[in-house]
Computed example of a mutant assay.
Amino acid sequence: MASAQVVRSEWTKIRSVASTVWTLSLAFVVTVALGVLISVLARNEFDRLSIEERLAFDPTLVSFAGTGLGQLAMIVFGVLVVSNEYSTGMIRTSLAAVPQRGAFLAGKVAVATALALVVGMVTSFTTFFLGQAALGDLSTSLSAPGVLRAVIGGGLYMTLIAVFSMGVATMLRSPMLSLGILMPFFFLISAVLGNVSATKKVGQFLPDQAGGKIMEVVPPVHDDTPYGPWGGLIIMVAWVVAALVGGYVLLRRRDA
């Protein structure tokens, strides 16, 4: 099957499954709503901050406070894009139609990545503008140094989370197993490793912590991270590539 037909087929499959559409919509709503709420609270609490905390106040990052929860929906989206076919048995039909497994996976990843990128960018810019409006006098603008990079980076971060989840789901095939590993990994293991002094140097190289640096404009107080925003994003990309390569290798070796 030609590459254009593979892409068209994957687009049809993704848009015809209601759960994938709902997860992307939820990613937008949760990220924007929580970002605005945290921005309002941050504005109200600003006068109570210490001088050091005020100097390190990052209005851009504050508006992205909902990204941590919004990425949950992007993880679910990435998993469902792959594992839906395994859970329904449609994977046999898909691989029969596209026997070149590399082309099959590439088409699926390309369509899902493009969709996640559009949603991620719209979410990121909407979150930023509404968050800055909620911050009032504490707000910043896209023309300020580093802000446009952070806003674009927010969209890239959400996209990469979805693609990483696709790679993991391709390796594991089961939606329950994939979510059972990814959810604790991002919401428990990464947080613990990143906040415990003994493991902090390891935790800061995990995909979410490294990738999240791209959304920072003002460095945190006493920040000793050995890489900058773009360096962190490169680390996250490396994780994503590793997950996709692992998924491709196992897809070729296993039966449907």
Rank of each mutant, 00 (worst) to 15 (best):
S50C: 14
M236C: 07
G228R: 05
P220G: 09
S63W: 00
R254F: 12
A33K: 03
F77S: 07
L37Q: 08
A162S: 09
G78P: 02
K213Y: 15
V32H: 08
A169G: 01
S174D: 10
L135A: 12
K108C: 08
E85M: 07
P99F: 06
G231P: 04
L34P: 09
G246N: 01
R149Y: 10
W22H: 10
V241I: 03
G203Y: 06
G247I: 14
F187G: 00
L37R: 06
T60G: 08
H222M: 12
A114C: 15
M1F: 01
L244H: 08
A256Y: 00
V192K: 03
G212P: 11
V118A: 14
M176N: 04
R254D: 14
S139Y: 10
L148T: 05
V147I: 09
E85Q: 05
S63V: 06
Q204V: 08
V109E: 09
I14S: 02
V217C: 04
N44W: 11
L244D: 02
G232T: 09
G180V: 10
R15V: 09
V79M: 11
S165L: 03
S124W: 05
Q5R: 15
S197R: 01
R15D: 03
G167Y: 13
E10N: 08
I152Y: 13
A256E: 02
Y248D: 05
V98C: 07
T126G: 04
L72A: 03
M121D: 06
V79I: 10
A162T: 11
E216I: 15
M236G: 01
L206N: 01
S87V: 12
G203Q: 02
L244E: 07
W239K: 04
P59M: 06
L72H: 03
I189Q: 03
A162G: 05
R173I: 13
V196E: 00
E85L: 05
K213A: 07
V168W: 05
S87M: 11
N195K: 03
T170I: 09
